[in-house]
Design a protein around this nucleic acid. Structure first.
Length: 348
DNA sequence: GACTCGTGGAA
DNA sequence: TTTCCAAGAGT
C-alpha cells in the first residue's frame, strides 16, 4: 500500500518530464523559477476546455487573447462580437456566461478574479471543476480537480466499480486524499495529463504509467472497463426548415434567443425543429436547394434549406450587408446551410 | 438525479 | 457509418 504522498511525488516526477506544452500553461520548470500563470488566461482556457479537446481549443484561445488581452477588454466587448468569436466551439452557454463572468469580475471584484475556490464558485460559468482548476493552477491552492480524466484515473487506481455519476462523491473524496500540499497546481495538471495521454478511455498505456504498480484495476485486469457508466439513450431524428433570404447582396440573419439551443448566436430563421422559430420570414418565391444533416448532443437533425430573394420587409430577422456578414460567426449547423447556398451560381 | 446543451476526431 | 467521447455547468 502506497501512501498518498509517495503517489503524488511519483506523479509530479513524471509530470516534470512529460508535461504537455499548451499556450495557457506555465511549464513546471518556469513555475519552479517563480513564474505565475495569468488567472485570466487560466480561466479562459478552463472554460473553453469544458467538454472540449485541447486541439479544438487552441486556435480559439489565441484569437480571444489577441482580441481581448485582459478581463477588462473582454468585459467591455459587445455580446455579438464574443458570440461570433466563439462560433464553432459549441456549448454556447459558455460564451454567454464568459461575458457575464468577465463583467462581474470587473464590476464586483475590482478586475481581479477571486482567489478562493468558494469565491470562484459564485461566478457564472464556474462550477465545481473550474473553480478547483483556477484555484489550483492560478493560485496554487490545494483544491482537488475532478474532471473526466480524474474520474477515470481514480476509478482505476482505487478500483471503484460503482457507475458514474453516482460514484462522483466517492471519486472526489479519493481525489482530494491524493492532492498534495506541495505543488498542487502542477499536480492538478499532472493528473489530467496522465488521464489524457496515458490512462486513456479505451486502451490505457499501463506499461508507461507512473502509477501502474499501485493500480488496483490493473491488478484485477479490468482497467479498460472503468469507470462504469450507464448506457446513453438513442438520439431521435428531428426534421425542420431553414430560410436563407437575401436582397441586393444583403443576407437575412436572425439573432437567436438568449436561452436554449444555440442561444445568443446569429443564424437563419427556422421553423420549430429547435423548439423555437415559426413561419417563413417573408412572403417570397422560396426554392428548395437541398438538405443539411447535423448531429447535436441529444438528437440528429435533417434541415430542408430554402432560399429566395426577398422583396418586401421581412417579418423576422434583419438584412445584413454582405460585407458586414461573417459566415465564421455562425454556429456549425448554420454554416453548413450557408455553404450549401453559397455553392449555388446565382446566390450572393 | 435527470435533462439540456456542440463539435470534431478517433476507433 | 455509427458510436464514443473531451479539462462540465445550469436548470
Amino acid at each position: 500500500m502506497q501512501t498518498a504522498e509517495s503517489l503524488a511525488a511519483q506523479l509530479l516526477s513524471w509530470y516534470d518530464r512529460h508535461a504537455r506544452i499548451m499556450p495557457w500553461r506555465v511549464s513546471p520548470r518556469d513555475r519552479a523559477a517563480g513564474q505565475r500563470p495569468d488567472p485570466y488566461r487560466v480561466w479562459l482556457s478552463e472554460v473553453m476546455l469544458q467538454q472540449t479537446t485541447v486541439a479544438a481549443v487552441t486556435d480559439y484561445f489565441h484569437r480571444f487573447i489577441s482580441r481581448w488581452p485582459t478581463v477588462h477588454d473582454l468585459a467591455a466587448a459587445e455580446d455579438a462580437q464574443v458570440m461570433g468569436e466563439w462560433a464553432g466551439l459549441g456549448y454556447y452557454a459558455r460564451a454567454r456566461n464568459l461575458l457575464k463572468c468577465a463583467r462581474a469580475v470587473v464590476t464586483s471584484h475590482g478586475g481581479r478574479f477571486p482567489t478562493s475556490r468558494e469565491g470562484l464558485l459564485t461566478l457564472p460559468g464556474i462550477g465545481p471543476y473550474t473553480a478547483s482548476a483556477i484555484a489550483a493552477i492560478a493560485y496554487d491552492h490545494p483544491a482537488a480537480v475532478v474532471d473526466g480524466n480524474v474520474e477515470r484515473v481514480i476509478s482505476r487506481l482505487y478500483l471503484v466499480e460503482k457507475p458514474l455519476p453516482a460514484a462522483k462523491p466517492k471519486l472526489t473524496e479519493l481525489a482530494a486524499g491524493l492532492t498534495p500540499a506541495s505543488r498542487p497546481g502542477d499536480y492538478a495538471q499532472a493528473i489530467m495529463d496522465l488521464g489524457a495521454t496515458v490512462c486513456t478511455p479505451r486502451a490505457p498505456a499501463c506499461g508507461i504509467c507512473p502509477w501502474s504498480h499501485a493500480c488496483e484495476a490493473r491488478a484485477a485486469g479490468i482497467q479498460a472497463a472503468l469507470p462504469r457508466k450507464a448506457p446513453k439513450p438513442d438520439k431521435p431524428l428531428r426534421r425542420g426548415t431553414l430560410w436563407l433570404g437575401h436582397r441586393d447582396g444583403a443576407i437575412l440573419i436572425e439573432r437567436r434567443p438568449d436561452r436554449g439551443l444555440l442561444g445568443g448566436m446569429a443564424g437563419f430563421p427556422g421553423d420549430g425543429w429547435d423548439g423555437q422559430g415559426g413561419p417563413a420570414p417573408a412572403d417570397a418565391d422560396w426554392q428548395d436547394i437541398g438538405e443539411v444533416r447535423h448531429t447535436f448532443t441529444h438528437f440528429h437533425l435533417i434541415l430542408r434549406v430554402m432560399t429566395a430573394r426577398i422583396e418586401g420587409p421581412p417579418t423576422r430577422g434583419e438584412l445584413i450587408p454582405r460585407h458586414s456578414f461573417r459566415p465564421a460567426d455562425l454556429p456549425t449547423v448554420m454554416r453548413k446551410a450557408w455553404d450549401l447556398a453559397r455553392a449555388l451560381p446565382d446566390f450572393p
